[in-house]
Simulated scan of single mutants.
Amino acid sequence: MQSISPNLFVRDILLSIAFYEKLGFKKVMTVPEAAPYVWAMLESGSVNIMLQTLESLGTELPEIQRDKTGGSLLLYIKREEVTSFFESIRGKVTVLKGLEKTFYGATEFTIIDTDGYVLTFAADE
């Protein structure tokens, strides 16, 4: 295995792109090339996240389902300078858990995105 790139199924792909851009992600690819999009890939450093509408799958993968309460998924993202990153975004996103030092030595915080996905950002400080 070489990498993992989560593909998050979202209700409003433009709203989701805007949210992840607040976190420093850049849009690198979309389908189609111009809005309205059905799929997008964003990246920040070596982290990739894909966003896709459920409608775009049609009947290809009926096993993939979403209810309106969000996903049962937490993305744990390691990064440098987590404290300054937290300070730069905390007024722009919904923070579930503020900065804290964990028993395993990480400094981390947790937010929620516009579709209910939970993201924890952490650094070994």
Rank of each mutant, 00 (worst) to 15 (best):
S84A: 13
I4P: 02
T30W: 04
T53F: 03
G98F: 09
M50V: 03
R11L: 01
K101R: 10
I89E: 04
V95F: 07
T30V: 11
V28K: 06
G58F: 05
I49R: 08
R79S: 01
L61E: 05
G105H: 01
G71L: 13
F86A: 10
R11D: 04
S88A: 12
G105Y: 01
E87F: 06
F86Q: 03
S46N: 14
P62C: 00
I77V: 15
L54P: 05
G71K: 04
G98A: 14
S46Y: 04
E81C: 00
M1S: 10
T94I: 14
V82P: 11
T30L: 08
E108M: 15
L57C: 01
G24W: 05
R90P: 01
T83M: 02
V82Q: 06
E80Q: 02
M50R: 07
T107L: 05
V10F: 09
A106Q: 12
V38E: 02
F121L: 09
Y76C: 04
T30M: 07
M41W: 03
Y37D: 07
K26T: 15
N48H: 07
A40R: 05
G98S: 15
R79C: 10
I13D: 00
R90C: 09
M50G: 06
T114V: 15
K22P: 09
Y104G: 08
A18T: 01
T69H: 08
I77L: 14
E87P: 02
E60T: 00
S44C: 12
A34C: 00
L23K: 11
S44Y: 09
V10K: 08
F86T: 02
T30N: 10
L54D: 00
G71N: 07
G58D: 02
R79P: 01
Y117G: 14
L61T: 03
V93P: 10
T110A: 13
G91A: 00
I111S: 12
D115V: 10
K27H: 05
R11P: 01
S72C: 11
V47K: 03
S84R: 14
G98V: 13
Q52I: 07
